[in-house]
Design a protein around this nucleic acid. Structure first.
Lengths: 119, 119
DNA sequence: ACAGAGTGCTAACACCTGCAAGCAAATGCT
DNA sequence: AGCATTTGCTTGCAGGTGTTAGCACTCTGT
């Protein structure tokens, strides 16, 4: 019902028409059923990310764009987070990662006090 | 049964334990139920992108990373460097950044020298 | 005019997601 | 010890996702 938040369906339809694809044709290319695509475009149903991935491929637009449009990704290019940077660092042992992240979290929590309202 | 393709659950659990969060705590922070998170971590259920978004926020990792891990985005984004991420973190004061990066470099050097057979 | 194929949409259904309630085993607290 | 809390997990259940059938309409060719 609530498609007022993101007009994902309208966007998909717009992309489809710009590619001169019929609803059935796009559905078949994306590997989903045509009635479902119809409902997606009209905002009746909210497609899962799996479906969005297929649609993005069929429409030849990036998955990020669609996800962002669908409200599944908050902003555009996210700033790299410390947590995943540390996690992805090959030179650190698991224990070292834990130490670093513990410190990081402690620093952040000390920094903004508004977050923790312990009951 | 199909958890062989992507060990998303294991990855999430790994991230959760790295953050020293209990299952219930993460579930609450992410705004999902704890039994469901349990099932996600064990690969029984496949979470929607909406749930993944909340988890990524609670775990402070980018949604792209999680989506990629879940097989919802094809390509893998380049892992950001720790230095880059720390520098770009708005929540840290310059002094805190210095502390973190000092520790980071110390750990890396220690790891390089010893190449510890820890565990 | 009539078939045939194309368009998008509706209806009924199976399946799965995500949740509330409740469980046993650790852990903490007095 | 006893009792409360916390840990992760199992079980039913409501609601949404995505399907196959079939609807009405338009356009084309004969």
């Amino acid at each position: 019902m609530n498609e007022s938040k993101h007009d994902l369906g309208a966007f998909i339809r717009q992309q489809r028409e710009r590619a001169n694809l019929s609803l059935r044709r796009l559905a078949e290319t994306a590997g989903i059923s045509n009635p479902y695509l119809s409902q997606i475009e009209r905002g009746i149903r909210r497609p899962s990310a799996e479906i969005l991935k297929r649609l993005s491929r069929a429409l030849e637009i990036s998955a990020e764009t669609l996800y962002t449009r669908a409200g599944l990704i908050d902003e555009g290019p996210n700033p790299p987070t410390v947590v995943e940077a540390v996690e992805g660092d090959q030179r650190l042992t698991p224990r070292q990662k834990t130490v670093l992240l513990d410190l990081y979290r402690a620093l952040v929590e000390a920094g903004d006090v508004a977050e923790t309202t312990e009951e």
